[in-house]
Design a binder for these strands. Structure first.
Lengths: 219, 219
DNA sequence: TTATTATTTTTGGTATACCAAAAATAATTT
DNA sequence: AAATTATTTTTGGTATACCAAAAATAATAA
C-alpha cells in the first residue's frame, strides 16, 4: 500500500472516530475519501494486514495503537504546517488547509520539529484545533463556539471560523475581536440569537454569527 | 500519468540535457530514475502524448517548450525550498536536498512566491545553482570549482560542496571562508595541487580540496 | 564489412488503487 | 415476523507504473 494512501485512510479514520473513541463505518470513510464503499473494504483489509486497524467483517474499523500513533503524527504535521503558513508566511486562515493537505505527507521529523520550535511549540492551530506533540499527546481544547457558550460564564474570544470581509467588518464594528471578554446573558427562544455583554455594553448576536465565533472560558 | 511521475521525468530530462540543449537517451534516464529502460520507453511515449517532450523511436527525448516550462518550475520549487530550509530553518547544506525532493512536488504558486519573497527573491541557491524566476528565466551562474579557476584571475569564495567537519576545519584554519578573495598562482603538474594566494599568503591546496571549493570571478 | 556489444523496443506479467454491478448481510420500518 | 432499505462484500474489470526476458535496432570494434 502506498504511503499517501495509508496516511489518508488513517487520518480520516482518526477524524471520523472522534479521537479514536468510536468504530467507523465503510460508508462514512467512503464518503469522506470520495471513493465507493467497495474500495474501502479492500483498503481496510490491507490496513488490518499492516496492523494499523482492527477490522472485523461487517462491523467496522478502529485504529490500533500503532495506527493511532501514525494518525496523530499526520495530524501534527498538518496543523504545524497550517500554523506556520498563517503565522510565518501570512496566509489567510481559509487558505492554509488546502496547502497543508499536501505538505502533511512530507515525513521528516526534524523538519516538523524546527517548524514547531520556530512557532514556540504551540498546542493549538489558528482554527483552535489541538496540535499533538511529538509523542502524540493532545492538550484538550476548551475552545467552543460562542453559540454553545453557557450563560453567565465569562469567555474570551479566541478566533473566528468565517473570514469573509462582511463578517470581519461586523466584528470590527462591535469590537468583537480576539482577546475580548464576552458573557452570554440570555438566548432568544425565537431565533436563537444571543444577548451578549461585551465592553460593558449589551449587544445582540445572531445565531449564525455566534456559530462563527470561537471562545474559551476566561482564566 | 501521475503528476509526480511526470514531474520526476521532466526534471530528470532537464538535468540530463544540460538546460535542454541535448537529446537524452532512455538508458541515461533509466539509470538516473532507478528504473529499467523499458519503463522509460513507455513513459516518454506518454509524455509525448501530453506534448511535453519530442520523441522519435530509437532517437532520444527532448523537452518541448511546454515541457521545459514545467521542468523549470519544478527546479525553481526545489531550489527555493533548499534555500529556505538552509537560510530560514537552519538546515545544513547537505540535508536540504532530500527534503526539497519531496517538498518540490507541492504545487502552489503563491506558496513559492511567499517563500521567495521572504528570501529576497534569490537568483542562486546555497549550492550556487541558479533559481529560475517565475517565468522560467535563469540567471547564468559564473560559479566554478576552484580547481577549474584560471591562473591570475582573482576569485571570491562563494561556497563549498563538502560539509564534513574535517573539511570545514581545514578551511577555517586557512581562512578559506565565504567572501575571501583567492588567486591561483600555479598548478603542480605532479598531483594537480594549486598554489593559491589568499590573505597575501601563499598556500597549497590539494586537487581534492579545490574541487570542493566554489568560486566566482571577483567583480 | 562483419562481428560484437549496447541500446531500445516489444511482449507478457505483477501490484496498486480504483470502479460498477451483483450478491450477501445488517438494520429499519411496517 | 416480513418487507423494505441501507450497508458491506464479492466479483469482474480498468489504468498506472513498474519488471523480466526476448526481439529489434543502432553503434562500435575487429
Amino acid at each position: 500500500m502506498q504511503k499517501e494512501t495509508v496516511e489518508n485512510y488513517l487520518k480520516t479514520i482518526y477524524h471520523l472516530s472522534n479521537g479514536n473513541a468510536q468504530v467507523v463505518s465503510n460508508k462514512a470513510l467512503a464518503d469522506r475519501l470520495g471513493v465507493i464503499p467497495a474500495t474501502v473494504t479492500e483498503a481496510v483489509k490491507k490496513l488490518h494486514g499492516l496492523k494499523l486497524v482492527e477490522y472485523e467483517k461487517s462491523y467496522g474499523t478502529r485504529l490500533t495503537t500503532a495506527g493511532a500513533k501514525m494518525a496523530l503524527d499526520i495530524v501534527r504535521r498538518h496543523r504545524i504546517w497550517e500554523t506556520y503558513l498563517a503565522t510565518e508566511l501570512g496566509f489567510g486562515w481559509d487558505e492554509v488547509h488546502a496547502i497543508a493537505e499536501e505538505l502533511e505527507h512530507v515525513k521528516n521529523d526534524k523538519l516538523i520539529k524546527k517548524l514547531a520550535e520556530k512557532l514556540g511549540n504551540p498546542h493549538f492551530d489558528p482554527h483552535g484545533d489541538p496540535i499533538p506533540d511529538e509523542k502524540g499527546k493532545i492538550r484538550k481544547s476548551n475552545f467552543i463556539k460562542l453559540s454553545d457558550a453557557k450563560p453567565k460564564t465569562v469567555y474570551t474570544i479566541m478566533g473566528v471560523t468565517d473570514h469573509s470581509p462582511a463578517f470581519l467588518k461586523y466584528l470590527e464594528k462591535h469590537k468583537l475581536v480576539i482577546g475580548v471578554a464576552v458573557q452570554v446573558r440570555s438566548v432568544e427562544e425565537f431565533d436563537h440569537s444571543l444577548n451578549v455583554v461585551c465592553h460593558k455594553k449589551r449587544i445582540a448576536v445572531s445565531a449564525v454569527a455566534a456559530g462563527c465565533i470561537i471562545v474559551a472560558p476566561k482564566g
